[in-house]
Design a binder for these strands. Structure first.
Lengths: 299, 299
DNA sequence: TAATTTAATACCTTAAAAGTATTGAGATGG
DNA sequence: CCATCTCAATACTTTTAAGGTATTAAATTA
């Protein structure tokens, strides 16, 4: 069986005439006759009744014509879908986010991607940093969003955004009256820090920042993520350093205050990570959207 | 695009290794390498990631593998169905029957056919003789059952059965008391005859039979079919000559009596007709069943 | 009956797939 | 770190099969 024969068959069936069909196919009549004969022999079925007027499909031939149309339809669909997949316009992209990553830039990027590539099925998984790296290596995900990434030989990363740090503080606290809070004031406040796992993390960074400013922070509580941290601020546990994106969490009794006189590094970056050797067009497409989003934002 | 390439692709995808795949395909490695390259070029999509360990499907390649499996499945189905159709085991067979043809042998033959060829869709049409011949010529049907057929150049026929004639008579009639009725007794009885159309028909035959026995029948009424005829017998219109198969109609007040001392031709044949040049395997299959039924019955 | 039209056959040419030998690139192991 | 091994890829030749030209055979039509 051979697609050439099927193509030829279709034309002969349409034209009901070997000579005319040969013209349509831009070949001469004898090879076409032969191909049709071979097709009939392959199938063991007479597809045409030969008449002195031309060729007429048999019942079996008529059925076969339908089937052949289905086959070509399926082949066309297969090529189209495969080409889309090859361009990263079709498929499934597994992405990991972290606890409070639903806020800020990530949903905007995801939205931009889904709009540009509507046929890509984006599946989100919530994982912390360590889980993300495992999942990447096991190819359970293709991409992870996270902060504070240590370099790894098999994992690449791409910066998404850097955010200034704000202080989430209870509105009853005296410092909440100031429009901006000098960084060293933090030394006197019990701090809620997160996340509690996967060093190096934001906790380490905070401690270093304090040391740069010449004090050791008073750690009130370590929690898993920003949401929990801000909730504790509302309950009066202390203050919490959060990235700007966390300010979408508006809880009663919590205000977000800009910091002044901070060390230069008083900002935190959000990056995405992926396998260094991942050549997938889906990933490439996603990173393009990401970079597009980043440059658009910086303008 | 070429089925050979798809076949090769499948094996390489399974083996993840050009050399092994080439062995499986009983060809050498270089042509296989080339075919895979050509396939990728045709599609414009990289289907495999080449590693020093072998070949690994890309996402697009994985999708394409699924599609290729579907394509081969469809091709297999197409060949099977076409072969069945070529053997008359699949398709549609349009058959005409006449008014009272639902009785007797025809349903038995249809049943035998459907049992032997369950995938053939038998479609029944009720037509009189003239309509059947038209429909045959226009290929709206492939087969018609009828009686009293005059030979035609483009129509062949095959005898189904011959049936003795019986007299359907009202049970109140004096003759109904006899176990058998001498044929000449008919001359005194008003006769109901059928069918009223498409000469030569059963009416002509009856008149000829009477003349052979030396009398002219007293025609009470011409009706369309046996069912109507027997119904009129029940109402006392007269008697009606019917083929044996009509005796399945048991109406109150009607008895069926064998005839004695009849002319030799006092029987009627049931035949089926079809286009002389019809080579359809479906028709051939049906005629085989028909002949099988006939020989079985004659034993 | 001759002419025409159809598919089929015989024979040759061309294109493409398969084979052989070899290369090049990347990993592995002493 | 170099030799070796194992892949896929390339260069070139052979074989196979598809395509072309010329002709035939059969059947219909003028």
């Amino acid at each position: 069986m051979d697609l050439r024969k099927l193509r030829y068959f279709k034309v002969v069936a349409d034209e009901k005439h070997i000579g005319r069909a040969a013209k349509v196919l831009h070949i001469s009549q004898p090879p076409l006759t032969r191909q049709i004969h071979q097709l009939e022999e392959d199938l063991g079925v007479t597809l045409f009744n030969r008449t002195p007027k031309g060729m007429e499909l048999t019942d079996a031939g008529r059925l076969f014509r339908e089937e052949v149309n289905n086959i070509f339809g399926l082949i066309e669909q297969a090529t189209e879908r495969t080409q889309k997949a090859g361009q990263g316009r079709l498929g499934r992209l597994d992405i990991a986010i972290f606890g409070s990553g639903i806020m800020g830039d990530i949903p905007k990027i995801l939205l931009a991607f889904k709009e540009r590539y509507p046929e890509v099925n984006v599946v989100l998984h919530t994982m912390d940093k360590g889980e993300q790296i495992n999942a990447l290596r096991q190819k359970r995900i293709s991409l992870g969003f996270n902060r504070m990434l240590a370099p790894l030989p098999d994992i690449s990363s791409e910066l998404v955004t850097t955010e200034k740090l704000l202080l989430a503080i209870n509105s009853n606290h005296p410092l909440a009256a100031l429009p901006e809070i000098p960084f060293t004031e933090i030394s006197d406040i019990p701090l809620i820090l997160f996340p509690s796992s996967n060093r190096p993390n934001f906790i380490d960074k905070t401690i270093r920042l304090c040391q740069l400013s010449g004090f050791t922070p008073h750690i009130s509580q370590e929690v898993g993520d920003a949401v929990t941290g801000v909730a504790l601020v509302a309950s009066g546990f202390g203050a919490c350093l959060v990235p700007q994106s966390a300010t979408v969490l508006s809880l009663p009794g919590v205000v977000y205050k800009p910091l002044i006189d901070t060390p230069d590094e008083a900002e935190v970056d959000l990056s995405c990570i992926f396998r260094k050797e991942d050549e997938s067009p889906l990933l490439k497409a996603f990173l393009e959207i990401l970079i597009g989003y980043r440059t658009e934002k910086s303008q």
